[in-house]
Amino acid sequence: MRRRSLLFAVPAGLLTLAACGDDKTDKGSASKSSSPVPTDSPQQSGKIVSGPVPDITAGKKWGEKPTVAKGSGTPSSDLAVKNVLPGSGVTVAKGDHLQANYLGQIWSSAKVFDNSYDRGAPAIFQIGMGQVIPGWDQALVGKKAGSRVELAIPPALGYGEQGNEQAGIKGTDTLVFVVDIVDSFNAKSSARGKKVAQEDKALPKVGTNTDGKAPSIDVPKTAAPTKLVSEYVLEGDGAVVKETDSLLVQYKGVLWADGKEFDSSYQREQLAQFGLSQVVKGWAQGLTGKKVGSRVLIVVPPALGYGDKPPQDGPIKKDSTLVFSVDILAKM
């Protein structure tokens, strides 16, 4: 099952990068996940009750793939939410990018229709904004990272009367989810890795603040490098980025020629998400091999950026060298 492309919508500022990327489909692992995303999400809300929800019979620890019993009796017509294991991390807010592992099955049959545990990586969904089924939007906002939450979602707050034929979900099915909340990111999120010395005076110096504000980028008054530069500013300890991955990032871009900013997720107050196959080669090559949780300086020479075909009517001119600070928040 594929997550709907809605969740891969590239923010406006990054479209200019994607326009010059390779014409490959995104092969990142995130594209394999879809179950909380309906074909036509019924924008409804309902009462939240504490149960009933089926028993978790195995995999009871946070982060373990759970086994969930078949639903007993008639499920509630309301949204049932049980805090199985309370967390103590950041509180999930409306509009955040929620990172979570989950398993979904049908109440009446215990048929599992999707789970992220077998894929070996949590999924990321923007929560509370109608991009996932209403039951998720209602139940998970306000929960804390580190929590395990079990949901029993009635049809009206799931896939509605149309169900989801591809997943084998009928319009009358109540859905059961176990969700392990890993983290939550928003427009104030920053990389929080270990500071790395920036000793090369021929390279731009990037600020190391982690307060969610855009870091400074000071470009030296020297000739631009002719080869790609990719250096840690803050080195995280997360998973290594692969060339097939999709990422959630904060970034800022300036021109080497005059240091002027031409694009920034901070300015838009919106995180960027993309597959590395969708962006200019300088980004794809510069971020591959780096660790999640890092801030990376990337200097993109024209040949790996826009070359002699810059975006029309924009600040990037022919044969511009581009300088980026990129915070790798998560793999999608």
Rank of each mutant, 00 (worst) to 15 (best):
I153G: 00
L203M: 06
D114Y: 13
V182Y: 03
G130M: 01
D200Y: 02
F185T: 00
I133P: 07
A145D: 01
L140W: 04
K144F: 06
V182D: 11
E235Y: 10
P204K: 02
K144M: 07
F125V: 12
S109I: 03
Q162P: 00
L140Q: 08
F177L: 07
V229A: 07
G207T: 08
N164S: 14
A167E: 12
F185Y: 15
V178L: 02
D173A: 03
D173F: 08
A123M: 14
L228I: 03
A224W: 00
A152E: 10
G212F: 09
A167V: 04
Q126G: 03
P122Q: 09
A123E: 10
D218C: 07
I153H: 11
A145E: 02
A139R: 08
A152N: 07
L234P: 01
K143P: 03
Y117N: 10
G168H: 09
A121Y: 06
V178G: 09
Q138V: 12
G158R: 08
T172R: 04
T226K: 15
M129F: 10
A123P: 11
T172L: 06
P155D: 05
A223W: 10
A139H: 07
K194R: 15
D137G: 05
S184I: 13
K170C: 01
D200K: 13
D118E: 15
L151F: 06
L157C: 13
G160D: 03
F185K: 06
A202R: 02
N164R: 15
E199A: 15
K227H: 11
K205Q: 14
W136Q: 02
K170D: 09
I153C: 07
W136G: 08
E199S: 14
